[in-house]
């Protein structure tokens, strides 16, 4: 990655300008052209370094969300994962090293739908689903400084 690409990623994880031509505003800050900013972000996105350029929404502010977890026997991991991921309400799902090994975020327009999704996953798998909704946040996700090698 070039120094310019690193600066672009470091300095514009937040505070993306809300002006008519935001890429031109960023270009002014970094001393390059608007076209170079657009081209570089497009390439970083195509290469997978950047997931997207846009807003990070707070799922809890838009509807109801929770972190759910299950202890899935290793032999059933593929089957249970396919079932869980089949719900549009599940947006993140990670396998983690612990007896409770499947951790996923469920987001829905309201709590009742969230409860229904969790109940259905529990019934269809016969496994307990831990429901761990956020009680309070102590850090807003504002991005974090990247450490380059």
């Amino acid at each position: 990655m070039t120094t310019f690409e690193k600066r672009l990623l470091d300095e514009f994880q937040r505070g993306f300008p809300l002006v008519e031509r935001p890429f031109a505003a960023i270009a002014d800050d970094l001393g390059v052209t608007e076209a170079e900013i657009i081209e570089t972000l497009g390439r970083l996105r195509d290469e997978g370094m950047v997931s997207r350029v846009g807003a990070v929404f707070d799922p809890g502010a838009i509807g109801a969300s929770t972190l759910a977890a299950m202890a899935v026997p290793p032999g059933r991991l593929d089957e249970v994962t396919a079932l869980v991921n089949g719900f549009d309400e599940v947006n993140h799902n990670y396998e983690r090293e612990h007896r409770i090994n499947v951790w996923f975020v469920v987001t829905a327009p309201h709590r009742a739908r969230l409860d229904a999704v969790i109940a259905e996953i529990g019934e269809r798998t016969g496994l307990e689903v831990l429901d761990l909704p956020m009680q309070e946040a102590y850090h807003l996700d504002l991005g974090f400084p990247l450490q380059w090698n």
Partner: peptide
Amino acid sequence: RLAAMQARGVIRRIGAVPNHYALG
């Protein structure tokens, strides 16, 4: 409206969302 949603906390930030895995 984007500014207002950001002020209300519905939007946490607007910017480039890095893929941490791809970045090492």
